[in-house]
Design a protein around this nucleic acid. Sequence first.
DNA 1: TTGGGAAGTCAACACGTGTTGGCATACGGT
DNA 2: ACCGTATGCCAACACGTGTTGACTTCCCAA
Lengths: 210, 210
Amino acid sequence: MTEGVPQGERGSAAEPAAGGGRTRSSDATRAAILRAARNRFAADGYDRATIRAIAADARIDPSMVMRYYGSKEGLFAAAAEFDLRLPDLSGVPTDRLGEALVSYFFTRWEGDTTLPALLRTASTNPSGAERVRQIFATQLSAAVARMVADPTEAPHRAALIASQLLGVALTRYVLRLPPMVDIPPTTLIPWLAPAVQRYLRDPVPTPTLG
Amino acid sequence: MTEGVPQGERGSAAEPAAGGGRTRSSDATRAAILRAARNRFAADGYDRATIRAIAADARIDPSMVMRYYGSKEGLFAAAAEFDLRLPDLSGVPTDRLGEALVSYFFTRWEGDTTLPALLRTASTNPSGAERVRQIFATQLSAAVARMVADPTEAPHRAALIASQLLGVALTRYVLRLPPMVDIPPTTLIPWLAPAVQRYLRDPVPTPTLG
DNA sequence: TTGGGAAGTCAACACGTGTTGGCATACGGT
DNA sequence: ACCGTATGCCAACACGTGTTGACTTCCCAA
């Protein structure tokens, strides 16, 4: 599942020579395919992003995609391989963690199409959804555990944070709701930060009756 | 676009007699198709939901779907035709609007698959996304305008509310993040209500520098 | 100079899709 | 009893998909 390479032992011992001629190096082609795949998956989602289109963007034959990544699923697995790259927020005062998280969210994702790509795919493709759940559990939930008072509550609180932040990603990057698209991050941050801050640090409220 | 019926003038003047035999009434079939379509679109999204599968669910031939709804797009248009059915909240004290909105959200959508259907489709299909934008503008934004102090700010504030509420819909109904799925609405409501309340009624915060 | 292997191309396959038109069947008014 | 018509089914179409295998071209090491 991780190693989907049928042939071509990576790295041919000699220097790649950064081909500018007719045949480029294997790694350059792989990278070109990956870049095209990320863009197409981001723009169209898993089903509508065709291997032919991706190959055309990478100026390569569709069969090369198969040779390098085995299958469309394998290509997606490679394209959606990503880190939230959550920074170390241990130096941030606890009452400003929400703001730090929200403003990091925008610096990380404005201009990067990987998140919408993942969201578009996960909405339709079961293995895409599973991937989101993994990222949530291993990355966000783990990071949140370091910011909350009681680590037991981390998944719970991380889910609430995800609901707000993925909601922003959905409305701003995927659905492109006009108001959400037009508001600049600097305006959005002070709106969103208190919500995230509360999910992070406020005491658990008492459930409503009935 | 709205009237996609090729033939069969709705309503045959006589009573339909609720056919239990071999041929059911036209309206019953239409309804069966629509119900199956909603479920399939909800479960699979626009692309993966095939007309053949929908027809099979409705125990009908695929060609009937075409006759009644013209095309797959037409079928989706009919299936995604929905009201948020936002209630009149004019009797609710202004400091409890957030809670009212959030608890209504759950009573409206728990057990109804139309929202995830729309979200799944809108993530991939441009006309699905357009539909969401319409619903946002004509229904949510309009309702929010009646709840805020300055109606000028309604789209702005409605977008923030949408980001939180659609984020919940996404994580709970579409991605099915385990913690989000497990938490009961009665616990979720007091978590989410303050955020929505703030988006609704709090003064506009000052943007962050830089 | 020559051979091996990697990089890339081409044409085709098997399949599933939306969509279409023709054909059978049962209903309801006369 | 009859016939028009609505209801439904069947077979097929044109097309786009992921995927495969054989073929050509180029580079690099003996």
